[in-house]
Design a protein around this nucleic acid. Structure first.
Lengths: 201, 201
DNA sequence: ACGTCCTATTGAACAAAGTTCAATTAGTGC
DNA sequence: GCACTAATTGAACTTTGTTCAATAGGACGT
C-alpha cells in the first residue's frame, strides 16, 4: 500500500499511545514491541518511526501520560478533602488507588531506564505530584521544613506501595498497604508536631 | 574448539556471575547480553546455557547475590550499633551506602520483572532484610505492632532512596537522602512513642 | 605411541526484536 | 486522464536469546 491519508500525524500519534497502553496493561512492559503497537491500530512498523524517534521515545511519552493521570487523580482527591491531615491521607489514598487500578502502567514508570538526559517536559511532569504534597503539608509543618517533609512523605508512601505491588514481600495478616500508609502518616505527623513543640520551648 | 576442561561447571557458573556483575556495573541492566557475559571470561554463547536455564535465570541469581551482600552489610552495621534508635539509623545508613556504592546492581533489583512464580530461595533472601529491621524495632514498638512498623519503615526508607538514585526528582538545597531518612526515623519513632503513651492511658 | 571413545565446547542457525529507507501506490491538482 | 507528490509500506539489516549437531581435545586402554 502507499499513500492513505486516513489519519493525520496527530491521530496516528494518539492511536499509537493508546495501543501501547493497552498492550502494557495486558502484557506488561516486557510485552511491548514496535510491531505490536502499530498492528493494534492497523498500520505497519515503519509508520511508528514517523511519529516517534524510537521505542524509548514512545515509552517516555506513555509514562508522561501516566504521570499526568496520576497527578490529575491526586489533584481531585486533594481538592475534595479538607486541609490538614485528611488531605494528606486523601493524597496517599489516591496514589495507592491509582497504582492498584493501573498496575502495569505504574510498574513501567519504574522499570523503564530513563535516558541519560531525560527531557525537560518529563522532569516537569514528574515534579508536579511533589507540588501537591508540598501544598497539603503547608499547614502541618513550619515553613522551613515543608520541602524536607514533602520529600520524606512522598518517598515513603511510594516505597510502601512498591512493597505490595511488586510482590517482593508478601503482606500477611492485617498488613494492608492502607494500614501501613495510615500508620506512617499518623506517626510522621505526630512526630513532626511533637518535635516542633519541644523545639519551640 | 571442542573439549577444554579448563574449568569446572561451578567455576564457569561463578565466572559468569562475576562477568555479568561487571557488565551491569559499567553499562547497566540494559547493557547486559548473553554474548557479552561469556565473552567476559573467554567462552562462547552456548556455554552460558550449560550453566543457566536462560538469561532470566542468570539475572535472578545476580540479584540474589546483590540481596545477600546488602543483607551482609546491613547485618554488620546493625551489630556494630547499640540497640534502639541508633541501630535503626545504622540500618538505614547501610542501605543508603550500599545503593550508592552499587547503583546499577541496586537498580537492577527493581528494573527486573520477576517471573510469575519467583523461586523459593529468592523470596527467602529478599525477606532477610526485613528480619533485620524487625529485630531492631523490637525494643521500640509494642509487640503487636512491630511487624506493622517494620513494613512501614522498610518501605519508607526504600522509597526515599529511590528518589535520589533514579534522579526522578532532583534534591536541591540541603535535602540529602541522609537528612530525609533521619527526619523520617526521628518523626516516625517519636510518633510511635507518643501514640503508645496516649493509648496506654 | 597410537587409536578409540567420550563429552565439553563450539558456533552456525533460527526466531523475534528495533530500526532504516528505497519502492510503491493512493491521493491531488492540472 | 495524466503526472506529480508524499504517505505508507515492508524487505532488509543488525542484534538479541536460544538450541543443538558437529567437533576437537582430553582420557584411557593396549
Amino acid at each position: 500500500m502507499g499513500r492513505r491519508s486516513d489519519h493525520t500525524r496527530e491521530q496516528i500519534h494518539a492511536m499509537a499511545l493508546e495501543s501501547a497502553e493497552q498492550i502494557v496493561d495486558q502484557q506488561g512492559y516486557a510485552g511491548l514491541t514496535a510491531r505490536k503497537v502499530v498492528a493494534g491500530f492497523g498500520y505497519t512498523v515503519g509508520t511508528l518511526y514517523l511519529v516517534f524517534r524510537n521505542l524509548e521515545d514512545l515509552v517516555l511519552q506513555v509514562n508522561g501520560r501516566t504521570l499526568d493521570r496520576l497527578t490529575e487523580a491526586a489533584t481531585a482527591a486533594a481538592a475534595a478533602a479538607p486541609p490538614g491531615k485528611p488531605r494528606i491521607e486523601a493524597l496517599a489514598r489516591a496514589y495507592i488507588d491509582f497504582a492498584r487500578a493501573w498496575p502495569q502502567r505504574w510498574a513501567m514508570l519504574h522499570q523503564f531506564t530513563l535516558p541519560a538526559n531525560p527531557p525537560e517536559w518529563y522532569q516537569e511532569r514528574a515534579g508536579r505530584g511533589f507540588a501537591l504534597v508540598f501544598e497539603a503539608l503547608q499547614p502541618l509543618a513550619p515553613p522551613d521544613q515543608v520541602a524536607h517533609a514533602t520529600f520524606t512523605l512522598w518517598g515513603a508512601i511510594h516505597g510502601i506501595c512498591m512493597l505490595e505491588l511488586t510482590h517482593r514481600i508478601h503482606l500477611t495478616r492485617g498488613e494492608s498497604v492502607e494500614s501501613l500508609v495510615t500508620s506512617l502518616i499518623d506517626n510522621f505527623l505526630a512526630g513532626l508536631a511533637v518535635r516542633n513543640r519541644s523545639e519551640g520551648k
